[in-house]
Amino acid sequence: MKIDYRSGNSIKTQIPLDYKEYLKRKEDKQQQQQQQQQSTQPTGAITYKRKDRLDEQFRQIFMKTGIVTQASGSCYLEIEKTKVLCSVYGPRATPKTELFETAKLNCELKYATFSSNKEKFDYLENTKEKDQSLIIYQSIIGSLRLDKYPKTVVDVYILVLNDDGDVLVSAITAASMALADAGVEMYDMVASCSAVCIKDATLINPTAQEETLTEGAGKILVSKMPSHNNITQLIQTGELNYNNVLESVNLCIDGSDKIYSIMKQNLIDSLLRQQKKDGDGNEINGITTNAADDQMEE
């Protein structure tokens, strides 16, 4: 068992909910019960309409690479209020990896304790974080050429600072950008997109509120490598009928293509920025990293 060494409060505390929200939920529950008594048909007819954007519209995305100076590669990504930081270390040698023919990929997602105002996150890794780490791992491992780096390990660490929905999409995108920034050889960058289905509407790029609107709502996550037109990961959870699945997968594929174009543009911009900086008098970083790559290949 893991022991937490951090200082804590001996008193049990909880996050208080909003009183208005509580009253509203109580009312809704009573209504539902009444309806269920009147008719035998299942209700669950929650209608929801987006106010500020269209159903298939994305929120504003901002990303920047190379902001953690200590890491080999890093990326900070913001989808409006959702904020994610990813840093990549490696490929580096560790005593454990001596036996591996290919590089080993480690992926770790952590929520900051203050990242959510509904859910409590501990300092220790919980099951949700483990599960999401694995999803990210599976999404990006297909894109990397790990056979180029034998006996090494590539570490990907992701920290969620603010959770306002679509954390997985941001994390996968940030991880892929950070890996590209670190110069790890890959077939293509992985772009990702998710959707939530509420009744008939398919909401792309949902907020935290939309994600928790209905329990058991259909959720779809697609990660793909757009230039190869390969899907690296497809996850569907919750109740959805067949036609809805096809439709949302198509919508998500379109969405990832859009994200990919932003990623590509950002990577080009960051390279140009670096080149300009190097041109100002410092030694050129590009050459040294290339030389290191060549050595690795030999």
């Binding site: 893991k2 060494y5 951090r6 200082s7 804590g8 409060n9 953690v68 200590q70 890491a71 930081l85 990813c86 840093s87 270390y89 580096r92 770790e108 952590k110 300092y123 890794e125 570490d155 660490y157 992701i158 920290l159």
Partner: peptide
């Protein structure tokens, strides 16, 4: 008020994620 410092592996390769480093504590 309870203060805690997290020096995770994200900020430097000197730290590991398994347990808090002495520096952080």
């Amino acid at each position: 008020i309870f203060v805690n410092v997290e020096l995770g592996p994200i900020c430097s390769n000197a730290f590991s994620s398994s347990k808090p480093s002495e520096k952080a504590m």
